[in-house]
């Protein structure tokens, strides 16, 4: 039970209404020191995998990524945390499959072998179906496919954050002062930070700068 930890964390505003993080990374890390060693270890294992901006697996091949994920599946985890990991990996898996189909390629063997919580054989069998025939299992799948088809990546990210936010909120509400509430807060905080880093003005300036560098507009 983490009555003191949960009560020491400020309220997280809904990601679309937030304009700043309610707690700094340093302060959050300080508060998380109350966690038991087991829970702290579980959190540190899972956090990089479920984050929207993966850092641990940056600049690695698909094969290495899948190996990493499979390794963490063997780590003993809290039941609710394991369920969330499965939920998040399913999303990543589905996005990868949808992107492969959109680009005209087949499912990479690394993904086929990964079997991250769902049957890749079933997806291969119904490769041409809009949602691989899994729309009734994963109700968010058609919307995800729609955003990908339109190349609306911001819309896709908004959908992903929304799905995960709702899932984590429901999970935290079930046990308000247990570990599930703690990891739900941390993951939501991570999502909020990633979301707040979106800056259309900066992005536009950076894009223009890159285009100029490639086309040598500035030098000419």
């Amino acid at each position: 039970m983490y009555y003191d930890l949960i009560s020491s964390l400020p309220l997280l505003p809904y990601f679309q209404r937030a304009d700043r993080l309610p707690i700094t990374p340093l302060r959050l890390d300080q508060r998380l020191r109350i966690l038991s060693p087991t829970h702290a270890q579980q959190l540190s294992h899972v956090r990089p995998i479920v984050s929207l901006r993966s850092q641990r697996f940056e600049r690695r091949s698909d094969e290495e990524l899948v190996k990493g994920l499979l390794k963490y599946r063997q780590v003993p985890l809290d039941k609710c945390l394991r369920e969330y990991l499965k939920f998040r990996l399913t999303q990543r898996w589905m996005i990868a499959a949808l992107r492969c189909r959109q680009s005209g390629s087949s499912l990479p063997s690394e993904l086929v072998n990964a079997e991250v919580g769902l049957s890749s054989r079933r997806i291969q069998q119904r490769w041409e179906a809009p949602g691989f025939g899994l729309e009734y299992v994963h109700r968010w799948l058609p919307e995800m496919a729609h955003f990908l088809a339109k190349d609306d990546l911001l819309g896709l990210e908004r959908l992903l954050v929304k799905l995960n936010w709702v899932w984590l909120t429901r999970c935290a509400d079930q046990d308000m002062f247990q570990f599930s509430a703690v990891f739900a807060y941390v993951f939501k905080w991570d999502m909020l930070r990633a979301w707040l880093q979106h800056d259309p003005i900066k992005a536009k300036a950076k894009f223009t700068q890159l285009v100029n560098e490639i086309t040598n507009v500035e030098s000419s």
Binding site: D4, S7, S8, L9, R31
Partner: peptide
């Protein structure tokens, strides 16, 4: 104990 722990946590905030 439960109320006290929550109170101590809230005092930090």
């Amino acid at each position: 104990l439960r109320g006290g722990m929550a109170a101590c946590g809230a005092m930090l905030e």
